[in-house]
Simulated assay, not measured.
Amino acid sequence: MTAPVLTPRTVWGQPQPLDWLCLAPHPDDAEIGAGGTLIRLARAGKAVGILELTRGEMGTQGTPEEREAECVQAAGIMGLTWRGQLGLPDGAVADTPAYAHALAAALRLVRPRVLAVPHWRDRHPDHFGAYHLARRAVHLAALKKAEVPGEPWRVGRTLLYQGNADVSANVLVDVGSVMDDWERAIQAHRSQFSGGYVSETVTPEIIERRRGRLTYWGTLLRVKYAEPFESEEPLLLDPGDL
């Protein structure tokens, strides 16, 4: 028997089938790592969501309540369809059977076609923990006999987004047209990005630093800004799209 399953708590919108779901270990991770792409998708009429695995309660700055309010503000800026929080313990995100069943139930609830997860190459334990947890949860969500609430669901594709470390991206998204809203969405997390320097990511310089990364990836496609992802499986393309 499995442990009792945690149910994701909705903080924005209503649970429904999503085109894209971004898993974020903490509030603000999705905006920093994949925010431009999520905004572009929302503008194109796609159903886009974010699921925070934790409430960020171990963060040096900001209470969970403050950070949730910031998530709501950012969701409105980005045009999200849904945003939820799974309630795993901050600082202890890991691939455990109980957590995997909880995440699998969330995947069955919102049925994403594409799942964006943190890259395994990251210094933060919650980030690489989220990657390994997501892999097990994707597998469980598709199993008919898994003791997971909801109807089985097979995620169509999983993409890895950049966190704190370098990545070998093989999927790039032009985000130059949405940089103003991307910046506003990050600034909505004011508890993290105002005041003094705390870490390489919790700093008022976060936008400047991330713009530098997006500029680098953009040069590879001869655009101003591009957001990087890594697909661990080959991408099947129609030659007419090349």
Rank of each mutant, 00 (worst) to 15 (best):
T2Y: 07
V5P: 01
T7Y: 03
P8F: 06
V11S: 11
P17G: 03
P25C: 03
P25F: 02
P27E: 10
A34R: 00
G35I: 10
G36D: 12
T37D: 06
L38F: 08
A44F: 09
A47D: 14
R55S: 14
E57V: 10
G59F: 00
T60V: 10
Q61A: 05
E68C: 11
E70P: 03
G76D: 15
L80F: 13
L86D: 11
L86T: 10
G87A: 13
V93R: 00
A94R: 01
D95T: 06
T96W: 01
P97M: 04
A100K: 01
A102S: 15
A102N: 03
L103D: 10
A106R: 02
A106I: 08
R111A: 05
R111S: 05
P112S: 13
V117P: 03
H124P: 01
P125L: 01
G129C: 02
Y131P: 00
L133R: 01
L133D: 09
R136G: 04
R136E: 14
V138I: 14
H139A: 04
A146W: 00
V148I: 12
V148H: 02
W153K: 00
W153I: 00
G156Q: 04
G156Y: 00
G156S: 02
L160M: 07
Q162R: 03
A165V: 04
S168G: 11
A169G: 09
V171H: 01
V171C: 04
V173Y: 06
D174S: 07
V175W: 05
S177R: 07
V178F: 08
W182I: 01
E183Y: 06
E183F: 05
Q187P: 00
R190Y: 12
S191E: 10
S194T: 15
S194N: 08
G196Y: 10
S199P: 06
T203L: 12
P204D: 12
P204T: 11
I206M: 12
I206P: 00
E208W: 10
R210C: 07
R211I: 14
L214N: 04
L214R: 00
W217Y: 15
T219L: 12
L221H: 07
L221E: 15
A226T: 06
L237A: 13
P239I: 02
